[in-house]
Nucleic acid binder design. Structure first.
Length: 205
DNA sequence: CACCAGGTTGACC
DNA sequence: GGTCAACATGGT
């Protein structure tokens, strides 16, 4: 089964996911930091708090009091380091306007994002794909686990190359595929449950 | 009570 | 190069 077949099967089984759940590109950036090692429901609460405080803009986030920020995002865990990371990326996006930032090449942007403390490969690629609409395939824990079941092993770079070379560089496709993988992983292929083989999806539908 | 969640970092080999 | 604990809350 090739990548496109896998995509179609997931889509057919799970339906469209329509990621990333955010109202603005900068909200994607904020969510990308907050969701590190954390369930999305807890992130949603924090984003809600930030929205109430009118803090979902780079300038507002840069200027907010650190302790206040920490208390608002407490539900996401690791709240002290995440507060610091949020202000770091907010500073970057305050200096570099989001829409016009997209004119730069994907690789240049990626390196700039990776240079920020708290932004690793997955977070950078999530921002590139879902906030800046760049064709970067996001690899996460579910992707690694599912690929392993499929007999595809390797680290982040290897898997990313595998997806990107097997698929057309289509941003909506990349967005939806990653979303489907996460949803599939949550339901059928996580720490507690690994029904050895992924993509027997018909049986489970 | 133990384990896990859409990672990243710095220390240590 | 790779491995490992730390980071911390909320849900099963």
């Amino acid at each position: 089964m090739n990548m496109i077949d896998i995509y179609n099967k997931l889509l057919e089984t799970l339906g469209e996911q329509k990621w990333w759940p955010a109202k603005t590109p900068f909200e994607v950036v904020v969510g990308a930091i907050l969701t590190q090692r954390t369930k999305w429901e807890n992130v949603a609460k924090a984003i809600d708090e930030l929205e109430k405080g009118d803090l979902l803009s780079p300038d507002a986030l840069v200027n907010v009091n650190r302790n206040k920020l920490e208390s608002l995002i407490k539900s996401t865990g690791f709240y002290k380091q995440k507060a610091e990371r949020l202000q770091t990326v907010a500073q970057y996006f305050a200096k570099n306007d989001l829409p016009s930032l997209g004119e730069n090449s994907t690789e240049v942007l990626r390196n700039e994002l990776l240079a920020l403390n708290g932004v690793g490969k997955e977070t950078a690629d999530s921002m590139l794909l879902y906030a800046l609409n760049k064709p970067k395939f996001v690899i996460d824990a579910y992707t690694v686990r599912i690929c392993k079941c499929l007999g595809i092993s390797g680290g982040y770079d290897h898997l990313q190359e595998k997806f990107e070379s097997a698929l057309p560089k289509d941003v909506p496709l990349f967005k939806e595929f990653h979303a489907l993988i996460v949803e599939y992983g949550k339901r059928y292929c996580n720490r507690k449950r690994c029904n050895e083989c992924v993509l027997d999806v018909k049986k489970r539908a």
